[in-house]
Amino acid sequence: MKQLHVDSVVKHFFTTKVLSDVYLSCSPGEITGIFGRNGSGKSTLLKIIFGSMPADHAYVKIDGKVYTRRSERPSRIAYLYQDSFIPDHLEVKTVLNLMGLHHLKDHPAVKSILRSTFASISGGEARYLEILFILNRPAPYILLDEPFNGLSPILKDEVKELIRSAAEKGKGIILTDHDYRNVLDIATHKYSMRDGVLKPFKDPEELRLLGYLP
C-alpha cells in the first residue's frame, strides 16, 4: 500500500518525554498539517521521520517497506529544515545539479539567478528556492518544517500553490508552521500536538480548546 506510516514514536530528552507513542500516516496526494505550541515536539517528530534524529523507538514504513536504518530514509523522504540550510557559498546552478533538478533551470524564479550564490540573494528568495527544490525532489514524501517562515504574503501564496501542486502530482506532504491560517487553508488532514501526543482534529475551533490559539 502506498503510504508513509509512522507508529510508536517515543523520544526522551534526558528525563523529559517529548514524544509519546506518536502515530501518523500520510498517503500520496495528502497534505497533513501539524499544529502545536513551541516545544511541543513537531520538529522533533519530522526529524525522526526523516532519519536525521534518532528516536528511543520509531516504526517507519514507506510504501510497504519498513525502514529500520535511518540512513535509508532520505532516498524516499525529502525534508525542509526550519531555517535556511543550503550552504551560502553554493551557486543556485550547483545546487540544482546536485539535487538532480535540471528541469528547473528555466523556472522564472531560478533563471535570472542561476549563477548567484545563496549568500548573494535575499533570505526570502533563498527560502522560496529551498521550498521549490525540496518539493521537486524525486522523493514521494515531503516534510516541511515552517515553510512560511520569513516569506512575504505574496510569496506565501506562491508557496501554498507549490505545495498544492506537488500534492496533486502525487506527493504526500507533512507540514508544520505557526502561520496556522495558511496551513489550515491547504491541509487535507489536520493533527494537533500537545505534550508529545498527536491527535487528529477537524474543527479549527479545537485549536483554541487545546490552548494553541488565544
Partner: peptide, 18 residues
C-alpha cells in the same frame, strides 16, 4: 559553525553519522 548544513547533505543521502 553551521550545523543546519547537515540537512542539505542529508537530503542528498549523506547523514551526519556517516
Amino acid at each position: 559553525g553551521k550545523p543546519r548544513e547537515y540537512y542539505f547533505y542529508a537530503n542528498l543521502g549523506l547523514i551526519r553519522p556517516h
